[in-house]
Design a protein around this nucleic acid. Structure first.
Lengths: 232, 232
DNA sequence: GTATCGCTCGATACACTGTATCGCTATGAG
DNA sequence: CTCATAGCGATACAGTGTATCGAGCGATAC
């Protein structure tokens, strides 16, 4: 019933055992499972089985499944490299943005764990710290606004990319956007004439690289910030 | 096994029954449950019970739980009013942004269903159509980029707001951001001195209205778009 | 060396999930 | 009135997170 967060509770001392365990082992096993088969593959039974242990054994290291997920998320934050100290705010934020995007693409489940609870693990905190520190504006409220807006865009954009990716994967591989439109339902919908702009998008838009689209959007946000808070 | 989407399958004809059923009834019961108790409250058993029916009865109207969730999502899209035809792109996008934010705040579970699968219900499609149509640029690729960026920001920002809201709710109501920092773990972390900027944010930043923060970020994005695609 | 304590591990159990199966029933046809 | 059919929903199954608690074992006390 300890009301403390995972980050507060020390790991239990390692006991001699045929199959040793630790938070690290558990978390990386869980991450491996999630990377390979999605979040559904992460259950106490399956994680424990991957470590040759009984499901209940995990409760010595982790109080709840949500805690395990928190630990997984924090591990991902740990993979994101901080921006160079010498970088100006624009460079710094672009670095962070791409760092988050890359990490989220390596671990597609990451984006699904965003709205669960706030990310307050040590790695998440240092990630927040270095990101905030990359914006050296005088007004701290402006720093918060700027970082908040960039992160909102990044998370939203990455979520979109991952969703699209999943959709393509689940309905015939290597299909392009307009290809999905040829599903019988979509085709009929577009044929109704009620969605002229959508139809134009489907037929006329060039399907561009997702990385380019991400960059373009990021450019909008950074440009907008620049117009408001020009170098003092 | 019909491989068609929900949107493709007509509703079964209504049979005379002591407790009549329809997709609408099911979906609105599910939405009511989700609004009140979160997505966990939405199970076939509970939804059916709310309609005085057995769980299996629902399968006549909906093939799978994911389909039910799709229908719920589409219903939310239906609540968002389209921008006025007379509005310019900036006005139009701001209208849509606030529409989405308001809807997502009314139905906090909405944001959790974003990464499941693409939203292709009729209401989602008309929402997409009117949003795209609000941006009358010549280059259709630019329209996509612009709408994509704004939507990415909106979804990301709303997700952040909801997460924060949930955190506050789950750890003592009416607590402010810095208040959370006084949890023993956070306080100790900040005391290490490893997070100077974060500490400054916690202590010095004025806790502003979330609607204002949303507006500020949205302003960045729209300004950035304006600098790139000025009124032709 | 033995006995006892205490603690940890994990088998079992419980409540819940989504959904496949399939016997009953109730309606419609002849 | 009898029979066929179709849909409803009770039952069942495999899975989930986790509470409980008995067994076994290591350490300590005498």
């Amino acid at each position: 019933m300890s009301n403390e967060a995972v980050w507060d509770r020390p790991e239990p001392p390692s006991k001699p055992s045929p199959t040793p365990l630790s938070r690290d082992l558990i978390v990386s096993a869980a991450i491996r499972l999630a990377d390979e088969g999605g979040l559904d593959e992460v259950s106490f039974r399956k994680v424990a089985a991957a470590l040759n242990a009984g499901p209940m054994r995990l409760y010595g290291y982790v109080e709840t499944k949500d805690e395990l997920l928190d630990l997984m998320v924090d591990e991902v934050y740990g993979e994101i490299t901080p921006p160079a100290k010498s970088a100006d705010w624009r460079e710094g934020l672009r670095h962070v943005a791409h760092g988050v995007r890359d990490a989220a693409k390596r671990h597609e489940w990451f984006i699904d764990l965003l709205s669960n609870r706030p990310h307050q693990g040590p790695h998440a905190l240092t990630h927040m710290e270095t990101t905030l520190a990359a914006v050296r504006f005088d007004d701290i409220d402006q720093v918060l606004d700027v970082v908040g807006a960039v992160m909102a865009y990044v998370f939203g954009a990455v979520r979109g990319e991952i969703t699209e990716l999943r959709a393509e994967r689940s309905s015939g591989l290597t299909e392009e956007q307009w290809q999905r439109a040829s599903g019988p339902y979509m085709q009929r919908m577009l044929a109704t004439g009620r969605f002229p702009t959508l139809a134009r998008v489907m037929h006329e838009s060039s399907d561009r690289d997702s990385a380019v689209r991400f960059e373009t959007g990021l450019g909008y946000v950074l440009d907008g910030i620049a117009t408001r808070h020009n170098p003092a």
